[in-house]
C-alpha cells in the first residue's frame, strides 16, 4: 500500500508523510486550505505554490510550497501537485513509489474557474476520488449561466432598491463569484464582504486574483444606505443581528446542494443558485475514466453509492475506511 489511513490521516510509509491529516503530524501535505482538509497543529505543511497564502492564513504560519508539476522526492516517494480546479491552489497529489502511481484528488471540478487553474488529468494506477456529489441527481448547468443568473438577480434586486445578500463559503465560492462580478461593480451597485471574508479576499488579491473592491459593511458609517448593494457573507451570518443593518433585503445561497428543493427551503433563503466547486455525477464518472486507474477509492461524501455503481460497471472500487470526516458538507 502506497497510501493507507492511520489514526491521523492518509499515511505514506515510503515517504513518512500524511495527506490532509485530521490530527497533528510531522509532515502534512495538503490538497487545499478548506477546513476539512487542512487542520492546524502539524509540524510542517506542504502545498501547491498558488495555495500558499490561503493555507498560511488558515494554519497561522509559513508553509512550504511546490509548483504544479514539479517533482519532489521524500524518502522513497516522489510527490507532485497537479491542478484540481476546486479553489485557488487546490491540488491533486500524485505519489509515486517504485513505479506505482497513486493520485489523491482532494476536492475537484472540471469546469473552468477564473480564480484557479483548470483540472488536469493525471494518469495513475489508483485514484482516490472525492464523492461529495456522488448521486446522479447532481448535474450542474454551465457555471457561466449560473453566474449570469446571480448577476441578473442582483441587478433586479438593485432596481427594486433592495439589498442582495449572498451566502457563500468563505474560501473559493465567494471569490469565484466576486471575480466574475468585477466587471459589473460600477454598473449595478456596490459590493461588500462580511468581516469573515476580508482576510481570504486579501489572500486571493495577493495571489493575483482580481477581485472587486468589497469593504466590510461594519466599517461604514451608521445608517449607511446599502440599497442596491450586493453583500457577500458566510452561511453562518444568516439570521444574526449583523443582518439587521440591511433594509429590504433579499437572500441567496450559492451551493451545489441548492439543486434539491428541500435543501433550499430548509435554509429559508429567497433564492438558491446551483453553483458548485465540486465535480457533479457526470464529472466524477468522466474523471474516473480519464485517469485510467485500475483501482478507485472513494472518500468524502456518497462513497457507498459511488462504489456500488462503479463495481457494477466492472471497476475495482472501494470506500476509504475510517475517515472521520463529516458527511456531506460542501466547501
Amino acid at each position: 500500500m502506497i497510501l493507507a489511513p492511520d489514526d491521523k490521516g492518509l499515511y505514506c510509509p515510503a515517504g513518512d508523510f500524511h495527506i490532509d491529516p485530521w490530527r497533528p503530524v510531522k509532515k502534512a501535505i495538503i490538497t487545499h486550505a478548506h477546513g476539512d482538509h487542512a487542520r492546524p497543529g502539524s509540524k510542517s505543511y506542504l502545498c501547491a505554490l498558488p495555495g500558499e497564502r490561503p493555507l498560511s492564513l488558515r494554519m497561522g504560519g509559513s508553509v512550504q510550497t511546490l509548483a504544479y508539476g514539479e517533482r519532489l522526492t521524500i524518502g522513497n516517494a516522489t510527490v507532485s501537485f497537479h491542478p484540481a480546479g476546486h479553489v485557488l491552489g487546490s491540488a491533486q497529489i500524485r505519489v509515486e513509489v517504485g513505479g506505482e502511481v497513486w493520485v489523491v484528488s482532494g476536492d475537484y471540478k472540471r469546469e473552468p474557474d477564473s480564480t484557479c487553474e483548470l483540472f488536469e488529468i493525471v494518469e495513475c494506477h489508483t485514484f482516490i476520488t472525492e464523492s461529495t456529489f456522488g448521486l446522479p441527481i447532481y448535474r450542474w448547468q454551465p457555471a457561466d449561466q449560473i453566474l449570469n443568473d446571480i448577476r441578473s438577480w442582483w441587478q433586479g434586486n438593485a432596481k427594486d432598491g433592495k439589498t442582495s445578500i449572498l451566502f457563500c463559503y468563505v474560501m473559493g465560492k465567494t471569490q469565484r463569484i466576486m471575480a466574475y462580478l468585477k466587471k459589473y461593480e460600477n454598473d449595478i451597485g456596490k459590493i461588500y464582504a462580511h468581516g469573515a471574508l476580508q482576510q481570504m479576499n486579501e489572500a486571493y488579491r495577493q495571489s493575483s486574483v482580481a477581485l472587486p473592491t468589497a469593504p466590510n459593511p461594519v466599517d461604514m458609517e451608521a445608517k449607511h444606505n446599502f440599497s442596491g448593494a450586493l453583500i457577500f457573507a458566510p452561511p453562518s451570518a444568516q439570521g444574526t443581528p449583523w443582518m439587521r443593518r440591511f433594509k429590504k433585503q433579499v437572500t441567496g445561497r450559492a451551493s451545489g446542494w441548492m439543486r434539491v428543493r428541500g435543501r433550499r427551503r430548509r435554509l429559508a433563503i429567497d433564492r438558491g443558485f446551483v453553483l458548485s466547486d465540486h465535480a457533479d455525477w457526470p464529472q466524477l464518472l468522466q474523471t474516473i475514466a480519464d485517469t485510467g486507474a485500475e483501482r478507485i477509492i472513494a472518500t468524502h461524501g456518497s462513497t457507498a453509492t459511488l462504489v456500488r455503481f462503479l463495481r457494477e460497471q466492472g471497476l475495482a472500487a472501494e470506500a476509504m475506511v475510517s475517515t472521520p470526516w463529516e458527511e456531506a458538507e460542501e466547501m
Binding site: L135, P136, I137, Y138, R139, R259, V260, R261, G262, T305, R308, F309
Partner: peptide, 19 residues
C-alpha cells in the same frame, strides 16, 4: 440508484426531473 436518489430528494417528480 434511482431509489437512493429518491431517498435524497424526497419527492418522486423532483427526482425524475433531476435525474
Amino acid at each position: 440508484l434511482f431509489d437512493e436518489s429518491y431517498e435524497a430528494v424526497g419527492d418522486l417528480a423532483e427526482t425524475v426531473s433531476l435525474l
